[in-house]
Design a protein around this nucleic acid. Structure first.
Lengths: 336, 336
DNA sequence: TTTCTTGATGAAATCGCTTTCATAAAAGGT
DNA sequence: ACCTTTTATGAAAGCGATTTCATCAAGAAA
């Protein structure tokens, strides 16, 4: 693969001049410039980003850590990030944490070695303490770091998040307002903060509404379609009695809907359902899913803007706190 | 951020020794080794991937170009690629072509500058000719390149694809076998080869079955949920008469299902539907979508394996031709 | 004792760029 | 005509790693 030296030889100039032409960092005689450009085209020269990054100390990349690119939840976030980062000519280097501690640590080291200019992290398993320790260490000190979906007081200026406890509360409140008294819950993995918060919101709402919290009406699942399917099945296997379920994400809700159909339970006539996230498919399900909306793309955009802002040392005000919002569709019916 | 020099100073050895410890490329006295490792930990040293890549000429990355990470179709592919690449310690650098010519070209240059060790490309808009020209030029000559979803005879050894014409045929055949005579089609953008092939398969099936091809029963849409919604609406606005529709991807089928529900048309009693792709959500729709399955993750895996194989100059035989398969669910009914 | 391995280490070159510094020619000012 | 800018360019240093080559001590072989 040709280097700047090849180009300079071909154009009969020095490498410095080639660099100047390509970067426009200094005036170059227009004849010379033409020769250089011709050589570049002729040799199909593509500058080596490594060499350039090494000397300029700018990698042109932003590191992103999420659990799994392939989940609709995370790809919505990444898409938001991408829409603001791409126009700047920078690129994303995304690594998957797989919701496991060691992979998450690895992803972090891995990304740091690529010398991103900023970091957008959606950490699930790393504890606040370990993360703060890491923050105090060398690499993190100089790097703008944005936290997605986690709030750490020490970093309040760089957290983008949404009140999941409130979201859980709103979901449950809606069901109670619609007359439901026996409300089950399918939660995500309780190792994840989001799950706990939503469960907590559910619980608080029950209790402040004078309904008792019944832990046998709560099943911990895994945020996947299949686990939602199984959880719902389990409720019926156990002969539980309930008229509504708050399900901690739309993917599980989709699975649960499927099980209910198998079981010949009508939604919302027999069972009302509220999901969480408002992923794209939610409105297309049957019945269209009533859910708590998280503006994932917007949150991704906010995180990216925050990161870019930090790079430019500017201080534009960017929304960091997002509110969960109830989206009413067809999966909830007033309980008679 | 600390460099190998800082570590070497701290451990009172030369940079060479630090490098040797970290890479295990030469025997190092165990006392010395301990000192170095302590320094590494103390300084939180992370080697600069740029510098390393520059000298070793190995970037540890594989370039991927797809249209849009956030689409469930593409993220299924990426996920397949990731599952085989990640365990090797390499990483993906994915860039979006956005299904537009210039962005696709840019993505290509952009990625080449990052010096990936192999390329996995799902090109939509770049013509065969332009692509082959590019292949003949410098950067491509030395780089293993895998083509996903496109077959170019000159590159037959590195194409992973699926016969979309056959897929279109199978979908239509199923509807005809079920007694349907008036079969509409919602296609993807006809600028995309996949769309053309599926349309072509649809057409061939009609004609070989003694049904005439009626172009007013074909609407070109955009492979998005919303465009599927609109296309279906248009059929009814135009008062078209048909008992079944073959829809060129599941996302549009999902949109179309929605429109049909709005219109109080029952699926499959009034209208039968066959989709394409068999994305995860297809089985969860109501009615569960009969569709043509593309094993996207497996194709991604195959592409990745092919790329890695090329890197190691090994010759394991890897499946490159995938077959479309009809998955029967609930969205098709025998036409009385 | 002398020579030959072997093991452990450091010095220095190198990868492909950018950037500073130096220099020479051309242009401008008096 | 002389000095000062300005413009255009090249030489060389340096980014942070790896790797080759050289060195040196210590133990083995003769």
């Amino acid at each position: 693969m040709s280097s700047i030296k090849d180009v300079s030889r071909y154009a009969k100039v020095s490498p410095s001049t080639v660099s100047r032409v390509l970067n426009g960092t200094a005036p170059v005689n227009s004849e010379t410039k033409k020769r250089v450009l011709k050589a570049v085209k002729k040799l199909n020269y593509q500058p080596n980003a490594f060499a350039r990054g090494l000397v300029t100390n700018r990698s042109g990349s932003i590191g992103v850590i999420i659990n799994e690119i392939s989940s609709p939840f995370h790809s919505a976030i990444v898409q938001g990030i991408e829409t603001v980062v791409e126009p700047t000519g920078m690129h994303l280097i995304v690594s998957s944490g797989h919701n496991k501690l060691q992979p998450e640590r690895n992803a972090l080291n891995f990304i740091v070695q690529r010398r991103p200019e900023a970091l957008i992290l959606r950490l699930e398993t790393l504890s606040d303490k370990e993360f703060l320790d890491w923050l105090r260490s060398e690499p993190a000190q100089t790097l703008p770091i944005i936290l997605l979906g986690r709030y750490i007081p020490e970093l309040s200026k760089s957290c983008v998040c949404l009140d999941n406890e409130l979201g859980g509360y709103l979901a449950t409140k809606h069901l109670i307002d619609m007359g439901h008294k026996k409300i089950a819950h399918i939660s995500g993995p309780l190792s994840m903060k989001d799950s706990c918060d939503r469960l907590q919101g559910y619980r608080r709402c029950l209790e402040t509404s004078g309904l008792s919290y019944d832990e046998t009406l709560v099943i911990e699942a895994k945020f996947t379609e299949e686990s939602g399917q199984q959880a719902m099945q389990r409720f019926f296997d156990q002969g539980k009695d309930f008229s509504a379920v708050f399900i901690a994400n739309d993917q599980m809700a989709m699975g649960a809907l499927y099980t209910l159909r198998q079981l010949n339970k009508r939604v919302p006539e027999d069972i009302s359902i509220v999901g969480y996230d408002d992923l794209l498919f939610a409105r297309y399900l049957y019945p269209a899913l009533t859910t708590i909306r998280q503006p994932l793309a917007a949150m991704g955009e906010a995180a990216a803007r925050l990161a870019l802002r930090a790079l430019e040392h500017k201080t534009i005000d960017i929304k960091q706190k997002f509110e969960p919002e109830l989206i009413q569709r067809q999966s909830v019916l007033r309980f008679a």
